[in-house]
Amino acid sequence: MTKQGVSRRQMIGGSAAVMGAMSGAPKALGETSPQAPAPGALEGKTILITGTASGFGRLGAEHYARLGARVFATMRNLPRPEAEELVQLASDEDLSIEVVEIDVMSDESVAAGVATVLERTGGTLDVLINNAGIGLGGPMEVQDMEATKLLFETNVFGPHRMARAVLPAMRAAGKGQIFQVSSQLGRVIVPGLGHYSPTKFALEALSEGMAYELAAHGIEVTIIQPGGYPTKIWEKSTARAAALKARTPQELLDAYPEMTAGMGEPSSGGGSTDPMDIPRAIAEIIAMPRGTRPLRRPVHPGNKPQETINEVSRETQLAMLGGSPWAPAVKDVLD
């Protein structure tokens, strides 16, 4: 028993309940899902998305193209069936979707892929959507450096590489929009989920700092905070957790029995929510007038526990920097 009289098993059970509430909670009374703009609302926009092999990225590539955008759908390890399927769909529906190879963990791949996109657009890009991301559960102590580096390379360094690659073109144009796909868990923490929250917390800070710094260049940053959705991230996370468990000494696994017993076992995370909520929210924000787009957008039909933290953070930033030389940029981003 802990000092508060709660067992470790009860603590883990509580964590599971929290995750269930975050991923499968019913829609709040009167709450509506993100609404997509009218057909053609994204006409003329050029959009680059990372991680389009599945999940939010794949759905988004189709959705933005159907709204009239020219979409550069990126993924790694080409050729692959997912790329061929997307190319075929674009041909069948006469959509402007071009597949470009980018591995966000590689400086060389990011530089080459972005250069290809800019060559095809004549040097301009309206929107970058940093969607590529991974999960890998298990206690913090069990997360070896291989697992730790993999998560930070993908979820933090990857978006930073991509932003640095596209920003010169956006600065030259004096406009642009960067979306960072974070998570509810970039603001709140559930035990036993490894470095997922630390990477998303880092992405949140990186993105907000960048938003202040880019305001003078006319470039906007929006952080998307999804709750749980049934995408392949759960399946892929399970496989990574199984590999991590297999290389972890048994005595370390035994130190956290409740958290490690299920590592590598199939998960039905995400509940029955609709993953299209994310592309709809992003498309809605892209279609908004410049200067009105939000810094953060929580997206989920159920509970959004990060909303209170978002508001407290906003008030704190304004109080801290509202009288500083940064005040115009901070107020531009937060007001």
Rank of each mutant, 00 (worst) to 15 (best):
M22C: 12
M22T: 12
S23K: 01
A25H: 13
P26F: 04
P26M: 02
A28S: 15
A28N: 15
L29T: 14
L29H: 14
G30N: 14
G30V: 05
T32W: 06
S33A: 15
P34S: 09
P34F: 09
P34H: 08
A38S: 14
A38T: 10
A38H: 13
P39D: 08
G40D: 08
A41G: 12
A41M: 02
L42Y: 10
L42K: 14
E43G: 09
E43F: 11
G44M: 13
G44H: 12
K45G: 01
I47D: 00
I49F: 12
I49S: 08
T50L: 08
T52W: 04
T52F: 03
R58E: 11
L59E: 09
A61K: 11
Y64T: 02
A65K: 04
A65R: 03
A65P: 00
R66K: 15
R66G: 03
R66A: 03
G68I: 08
A69G: 03
R70H: 01
R70M: 00
R70S: 08
R70Q: 09
A73P: 03
A73F: 05
A73W: 00
A73M: 01
M75T: 06
M75D: 05
R76N: 04
N77W: 11
N77H: 11
L78T: 04
L78W: 02
P79Q: 07
R80H: 09
R80V: 01
P81R: 01
E84R: 11
E84D: 13
E84W: 02
L86F: 06
L86H: 05
L86E: 01
L86T: 01
L86Q: 02
L86V: 02
V87W: 02
Q88Y: 00
L89V: 09
L89T: 10
D92R: 06
D92E: 14
D94Q: 13
L95D: 04
S96R: 15
S96Q: 14
I97M: 10
E98N: 12
V100M: 05
V100Y: 01
E101W: 03
I102Q: 10
I102V: 15
I102S: 12
V104G: 03
M105L: 12
D107Q: 10
D107W: 11
D107N: 12
D107E: 07
